[in-house]
């Protein structure tokens, strides 16, 4: 009898309810989260849900043209070649830009890991474009690489070319702008991932007889790969939602008719809020599909500690 009571007491515990809740992380400090939750609800969850709701309220004209009732906007998105093609146009810009930014950042981050004279200066130069807005970048590109820009004038006056190079108001212009604004992000992220890898691992590989190619392929790359995947995703998302440069240095009705532009047009020119919302939602869906593929690949990689200062 007594022993039974003791056991019962032990399972119930002698701690107060408040104490037991605190042990599971429920206490008054949770109130600190209130501003964040309110912020998220008001500025993200509600508008997002409202936007999704809008997509199911197509205009009568859309319903008439494409059918599909509530889903008329989605039917239009997939059937209307003018809209659907822009998925490919956007991917055609965002995927190569993200890939380029990641690949070019790797050797630069590698080189800048060592100490040398002028390193700080070079680093500042590389990261500086982050401080420029996309509009400023676009403006600079137009002045520098436009038909009457410095570059073309210089090349023509020196007789290197007869016709000005078409570097802006097309695919190349937007690509250049995406690289200028995306590279600093990729470089900063990759160099921080790289500094998280313990340098003694490479020293160890060296003493075990690995040359620099083997060291990179067998030691550094496998440890860096998850970081590269994350960096790729972030620069891809940045590039995918490109809007100002697609308009300013691109060919807004042709090659660089990106999804963000299409959504903007539906909203401001055709006053079709529901179609604009549909395009915005589909932008998110396409991004999520690409991210899902990258994460799928990443799940096969080693993701544990890399021994460095992280």
């Amino acid at each position: 009898m007594t022993s039974a009571t003791t056991t019962a007491n032990r399972t119930a515990g002698s701690a107060s309810l408040k104490h037991r809740l605190a042990e599971r992380g429920i206490d008054t400090k949770l109130l600190l989260l209130v501003p964040a939750i309110v912020f998220a609800l008001l500025l993200f969850v509600y508008p997002f849900a409202y936007g999704i709701g809008l997509t199911f309220q197509p205009l009568a004209a859309t319903q008439e043209q494409w059918g599909g009732g509530f889903f008329a906007n989605y039917v239009a998105f997939f059937r209307d070649a003018f809209i659907f093609d822009s998925v490919w146009l956007t991917l055609r810009l965002a995927l190569p830009a993200a890939l380029f930014n990641v690949l070019v950042s790797i050797p630069i981050a590698f080189k800048l890991r060592n100490k040398f004279r002028g390193k700080r200066m070079l680093q500042t130069l590389l990261v500086l474009p982050i401080t420029l807005g996309t509009v400023l970048t676009a403006q600079g590109l137009l002045i520098f690489a436009g038909r009457q820009g410095w570059l073309n004038r210089f090349l023509m006056e020196n007789g290197i070319i007869d016709q000005p190079l078409q570097l802006v108001n097309n695919y190349i212009g937007v690509m250049l702008s995406l690289i200028i604004s995306g590279f600093p992000f990729a470089y900063l992220l990759i160099s921080s991932y790289l500094s998280g890898i313990d340098p003694s691992l490479e020293a160890a590989a060296k003493t075990l007889g690995a040359n620099w190619k083997q060291r990179f392929r067998r030691v550094t790359l496998p440890l860096l790969a998850p970081g590269l995947a994350t960096t790729f995703i972030l620069t891809f998302v940045l590039a995918f939602s490109v809007f100002p440069s697609a308009r300013l240095v691109g060919d807004a009705s042709g090659d660089t008719r990106v999804l963000a532009l299409m959504a903007y047009r539906a909203f401001s020119e055709q006053l079709d809020y529901s179609m604009a919302s549909t395009i915005a939602i589909m932008m998110g869906v396409v991004e999520l599909i690409v991210i899902a593929f990258v994460f799928l690949g990443r799940s096969f990689l080693y993701k544990g500690s890399t021994g460095g200062k992280g």
């Binding site: 313990d198 003694s200 691992l201 020293a203 160890a204 590989a205 060296k206 003493t207 075990l208 007889g209 690995a210 040359n211 067998r218 030691v219 496998p222 440890l223 080693y302 544990g304 500690s305 890399t306 021994g307």
Partner: peptide, 19 residues
Amino acid sequence: PSEKRDFGMVFQNYALFPH
């Protein structure tokens, strides 16, 4: 170069390849 010396080295922090 280090990789051609044919010396084995044991490090203070082990420096094992974590992956």
